[in-house]
């Protein structure tokens, strides 16, 4: 499915198929700017993505060596001991360029550079795409996962998706996954 995705998306809108392919494809996420503060959005997203089965590496030099939600915090992307499929940037738009440059030094390269809601950096996006890395800007992976799984509708949010198929269930009563379609 990922190969069918649009290769050069417009960054103001993304087809659902493009986002779904990324969330399907990615197994490990490095979250730059992860916070141990339980009411910060980055903490929410980290907790949610862990609950959906992703392996998440928190990156935050101020907390390096400590743990957030049982995950070891690293000072930088280069310190992460295993391959990173996606770099999720919880920093401001200006900082996103340096983070992207750092990410593009990794070997193997990440498959995706994802910038959080309100974070956009066109220069970073061009660099990443030139290296064959997919880019998402100004989106939240928790919201997108919640939208495409249907979970976000439980809170009255417009998922902008329709389906006459059975939702994909994960363990527990209130836990959905992404349907393969």
């Amino acid at each position: 499915m990922s190969e069918k995705a649009v290769s050069e998306p417009q960054h103001d809108t993304y087809p659902d198929s493009y986002i779904r392919a990324i969330l399907d494809d990615v197994k490990t996420i490095a979250m730059v700017g992860a916070s141990p503060n339980t009411v910060r959005p980055s903490y929410f997203v980290l907790k949610y993505m862990l609950s959906k089965g992703y392996e998440v590496f928190p990156i935050n030099p101020g907390h390096a060596g400590k743990e957030i939600l049982g995950q070891t915090v690293y000072a930088s992307l280069a310190d992460v001991p295993s391959p990173i499929d996606m770099v999720d940037i919880f920093r401001n738009s200006d900082a996103a360029l340096a983070v992207t440059q750092e990410a593009l030094q990794l070997s193997p390269l990440p498959k995706v550079i994802w910038m959080q809601l309100s974070v956009t950096n066109e220069e970073a996006a061009k660099l990443a795409e030139a290296a064959g890395v997919r880019v998402v800007m100004n989106r939240c992976p928790k919201i997108e996962y919640g939208r495409l799984s249907g979970e976000i509708g439980w809170t009255g949010v417009n998922s902008r998706t329709l389906s006459a198929k059975r939702p994909a269930l994960k363990g527990g009563f209130q836990h959905r996954g992404l349907r393969k379609d």
Binding site: T38, V39, Y48, S51, T155, G172, Q174
Partner: peptide, 15 residues
Amino acid sequence: DDVDHAASLFGLQAF
């Protein structure tokens, strides 16, 4: 589902 799930819901961390 469990205590952690309850905490996530009350904290608005999960849908």
